[in-house]
């Protein structure tokens, strides 16, 4: 297996599997966060349910950290290999009838920005201000208060809007490419995968975006 993961094809498998894990997580995360649109209590109770299930929480976090590390290490190795393979770049990228999507050509740069976003997101929320509240007699973290605190001014909302569009962009190419990397592309469903990938990226991006925008508008 060492030889397998040392090849370009093997590394793409690692990118694909780790990407799929994160694609699944991001979707569930977006859906769960929609509770903030219902009520701060519902959102807090949801967050509390997650953190109270320690074994599941730790297992999920370990899988996500391991997948992210695999994704980053493989991406760095592949990007270095790709740059040295190209040497001098042509004066222009393919254009006209032979042009390709911007998302697919800039995955490495998008990935680096998404990583900065993930770190800043964890610092602000997971490891951010800690308030307590009581829902139905249970004392829990008032995470919704942090959210309302952060998204009361324009700048954080704008930063999140930028990052979430970027994330959607990254996923719109990445999600479909997973099938190619894992050897699952077939003429019968290739066009459907392309569309599903674009829809997925759009839904995740717009879904997440609705949350800070709602919080900002409800306070202004």
């Amino acid at each position: 297996m060492v030889a397998f993961t040392g090849t370009t094809v093997g590394r793409k498998y690692l990118m694909g599997v780790s990407g799929l894990i994160w694609a699944g997580f991001v979707f569930v995360h977006m859906c769960g966060n929609m509770l903030i649109l219902i009520s701060p209590q519902a959102y807090n109770a949801y967050g509390h349910a997650i953190v109270s299930n320690k074994p599941l929480l730790i297992a999920s976090e370990l899988i996500l950290i391991f997948a992210l590390a695999t994704h980053i290490v493989s991406a760095i190795a592949l990007t270095r290999q790709n740059r040295s393979a190209k040497g001098i770049a042509p004066v222009r990228a393919p254009n006209g009838a032979k042009s390709t999507g911007l998302a697919s050509r800039t995955m490495a740069a998008q990935g680096a920005l998404v990583l900065v976003f993930i770190i800043s997101h964890l610092v602000v929320f997971k490891f951010g201000n800690y308030y307590e509240t009581t829902v139905d007699g249970v004392v829990m973290r008032d995470l919704s208060k942090v959210i309302f605190e952060v998204f009361q001014s324009c700048q954080p909302v704008a930063w999140y809007a930028f990052c979430l569009v970027l994330l959607g962009f990254h996923l719109s190419h990445g999600f479909g490419s997973i099938f190619q990397s894992l050897g699952m592309l077939h003429p019968a469903y290739q066009p459907k995968i392309r569309i599903a990938s674009l829809v997925y990226g759009f839904v995740v991006s717009v879904g997440f975006l609705s949350q800070p925008i709602y919080v900002f508008l409800s306070q202004s």
């Binding site: 370009t8 590394r11 793409k12 592949l78 290999q81 393979a85 390709t100 999507g101 050509r105």
Partner: peptide, 12 residues
């Protein structure tokens, strides 16, 4: 040679 990033430039 480098790795495939599924840009589709080759096919085009």
């Amino acid at each position: 040679f480098g790795a495939c990033t599924s840009t589709g430039a080759c096919e085009a």
